[in-house]
């Protein structure tokens, strides 16, 4: 059944895409409440964060526990470029992306020497160090007092806010672009190279894949996407403080990836929705909701360790191109 569904989605992908675009663009006109709009925005944002981390975790097999660090760098970078240098939001967002990608390059370097859990720990340390820098460098970041007065982004003179639906729409667009990018990457030679490295680095190297280069590239791309999400988050929040980016955030981003199913866009979207909706659903239980959230993580892993939507695609590999149809029928 899943195979049929995938096949249908593939056949009607252009229509689905247009439909999705319509939904995203008309979001401001739906008359949703602020709470609902914020929820949509946060789901889109976490889907984006999840997809960014997924490039490392799902595709390259490198588990990062420090993505809150990239998230924070993107947020602070974007905010500071606006507040201190007077850049426009869009320029600052791009600048923040470049900044985090550069830091991603630096953090990728240890991945050439360290493997598996050792690398995870270095990324974890990275996240903590970013927090320390944000706390300590008071003249730049405002330290523990935080950074206030971050302007809202404007588009053609119109200020994008939560209330007018502009920010959620922007979130959906950013998440969609990220999803398209990830999908394209996975269907291309670079994506195949990353998966080869994930499954067997030595065999990948013996196939002529430049393992160090692609590991670093994965870090850079992952950091770039996470940094852009961070920049966007700074615009949403309007103020920033170091406690916005604790280790728990890194864990939540990782949960987004793993709960839905690593290496897939649908998994990231599902994981993001779950992570954001659960606290809402369990709101009635007030003090117990985070405990339940932990329990749910355990249960999902216990009964579906590959992730809730982590099935192996039943639709065969497709060659890209205009004829894009299912070139070779799936077996079985």
């Amino acid at each position: 059944m899943i195979g049929r569904l995938e096949e249908l989605c593939w056949r009607w992908r252009w229509c689905l895409g247009l439909l999705w675009l319509g939904i995203a663009a008309s979001l401001p006109m739906w008359g949703l409440s602020r709470v609902q709009l914020r929820l949509i925005l946060m789901i889109a944002l976490y889907a984006m964060l999840g997809m960014g981390l997924d490039l490392l975790v799902g595709d390259t097999g490198l588990v990062s526990l420090g993505h809150a660090g990239f998230y924070a760098l993107g947020a602070y970078g974007c905010a500071l470029l606006q507040v201190r240098l007077g850049w426009s939001f869009w320029a600052a967002l791009a600048g923040a992306g470049v900044l985090t990608a550069g830091v991603g390059l630096l953090l990728g370097l240890p991945s050439l020497r360290l493997s598996g859990s050792y690398l995870s720990i270095v990324t974890l340390g990275f996240g903590e160090i970013v927090q320390m820098v944000l706390r300590t460098w008071e003249s730049l970041t405002g330290g523990n007092y935080g950074l206030r007065g971050i302007p809202r982004p404007t588009l053609f003179g119109l200020e994008l806010t939560l209330a007018n639906g502009g920010l959620p729409a922007l979130a959906l667009i950013l998440a969609t672009l990220t999803a398209l990018f990830c999908r394209r990457l996975r269907r291309s030679a670079p994506g195949r190279a990353l998966r080869a490295i994930r499954d067997d680095p030595l065999a990948a190297q013996m196939c002529g894949i430049p393992v160090p280069r692609w590991k670093i590239a994965a870090f850079v791309l992952s950091a770039l996407i996470t940094g852009l999400a961070g920049g966007f988050y700074s615009a949403v929040n309007g103020y920033l403080e170091p406690t916005n980016f604790p280790f728990n955030t890194s864990v939540v981003i990782l949960s987004v990836v793993v709960i839905g199913g690593a290496g897939t866009v649908r998994g990231a979207v599902f994981g993001a929705a779950l992570v954001q909706l659960l606290p809402q659903v369990f709101r009635g239980l007030e003090q117990w909701r985070f405990a339940l959230y932990g329990l749910l993580l355990v249960l999902v892993m216990r009964f579906r360790p590959q992730g809730v939507l982590g099935w192996r695609s039943r639709v065969s590999y497709r060659l890209p191109g205009k004829e894009g149809q299912c070139t070779y029928p799936a077996k079985g």
Binding site: V57, V63, G116, V251, L254, S255, V258, I259, A262, Q287, W288, F290, A291, Y293, G294, L295, L296, L297, V298, M301, R302, P305, Q306
Partner: peptide, 27 residues
Amino acid sequence: RGASGMAQLVTTVGVSFLVQNTLSAEA
């Protein structure tokens, strides 16, 4: 089940959430 190391890692994270937040519940 032969689950990936990542699934085990996330499980331990979930347990940690569960224990910490149970301890910090008002009751």
